[in-house]
């Protein structure tokens, strides 16, 4: 792997797939000309985030013409973009499509829908049930959509399946301006988790958050790339739309993994045994 990845930190128009798609195509076309190999947009980048009843109205089958435009452009550059997917049987998913070589080659359906506090995804969306890797011509990628990243399972699945980079498209709000921290506390939390994930998994962690407001809720931006040593190598500061590029290489992965051979020493079968015991025991305590 030796690829140039562009993060596109956008401010999608809520519910306007047509105008969001136009912006996607313009940005992807521009960065392809600049020599990037991959361009990544945030979670639900084609629709906006707080969809409520619009989720049903905006859902697209993977064969939709709107996605075809991205597929065609992916002959020039690989593209990751968020949309609402309507499956063949009619389920609605928070989905992230990866387009390459002229077609939609992979779709990740968000596994861990977020439904607490200000979020209510489970009310409108079905949950995905797998963490699969994308065999891109640029490397092996795993996708964790925002809340997916807060659960260790997906991270571990991509770790043991030897991903080169874990892509984390998000719609993370800006929250917590207390004087005891610098910047938004929600953004600091994300940075800590992204840094830790890079160290634990020894992969590139590519985080793409959106900006802008939806009914008073600000999205925090701060898109960034952390290398397998846990060092930030690219970042978009602030709450403005923007782009940044990072170079992802196999040599960096090998150096990190050579210095600290976590993968060599990992024992996934120990975890598998523990999970088997957990399943046999059941999650809840018996009522006596």
């Amino acid at each position: 792997m030796d690829c140039r990845v562009t993060l596109a930190q956008t401010n999608p128009v809520l519910g306007d797939v047509r105008s969001n798609l136009t912006e996607h195509l313009e940005i992807a076309s521009d960065v392809a000309k600049e020599g990037s190999d991959v361009v990544l947009f945030p979670e639900l980048s084609l629709t906006g985030y707080f969809l409520k009843d619009m989720a049903l109205e905006l859902a697209l089958p993977t064969s939709a013409p709107a996605l075809g435009g991205l597929a065609r452009l992916s002959r020039d550059i690989s593209i990751g973009a968020g949309f609402v997917e309507r499956s063949r049987e009619g389920r609605i998913y928070n989905a992230y499509g990866f387009f390459e070589n002229g077609e939609l080659v992979a779709v990740h359906r968000k596994v861990h829908l977020v439904s607490y506090g200000m979020f209510e995804e489970s009310r409108d969306l079905a949950a995905g049930e797998r963490f699969r890797q994308i065999e891109s011509r640029h490397g092996r990628f795993g996708v964790l959509l925002c809340e997916d990243f807060w659960h260790l399972g997906g991270l571990y699945a991509h770790f043991v399946n030897d991903c080169d980079a874990i892509l984390v498209p998000s719609c993370a709000p800006a929250r917590g301006a207390e004087a005891s921290v610098t910047g938004f506390s929600s953004a600091r939390t994300w940075e800590s988790m992204l840094d830790a994930a890079a160290l634990f998994t020894q992969t590139f962690i590519v985080y793409v958050d959106r900006v802008g407001f939806e009914d008073g809720v600000a999205f925090a931006g701060g898109s960034r790339v952390v290398d397998p040593f846990g060092v930030e190598i690219a970042k978009i500061d602030g709450l403005d739309p923007g782009r940044t590029e990072a170079r992802l290489t196999t040599s960096a992965l090998h150096r990190a993994r050579g210095v600290t051979p976590l993968r060599r020493d990992e024992k996934p079968w120990v975890l598998a045994g523990e999970l088997e015991r957990h399943r046999a025991r059941g999650d809840a305590e018996e009522v006596s």
Binding site: E178, A179, G183, L239
Partner: peptide
Amino acid sequence: MSRLDIQPELVCDLLVRFLREELHSA
């Protein structure tokens, strides 16, 4: 320092953006 203390510069920036974007989008 009170636990209610905020970073005024950060909050001001967010609220200015909020007014600009919510009014412009309307």
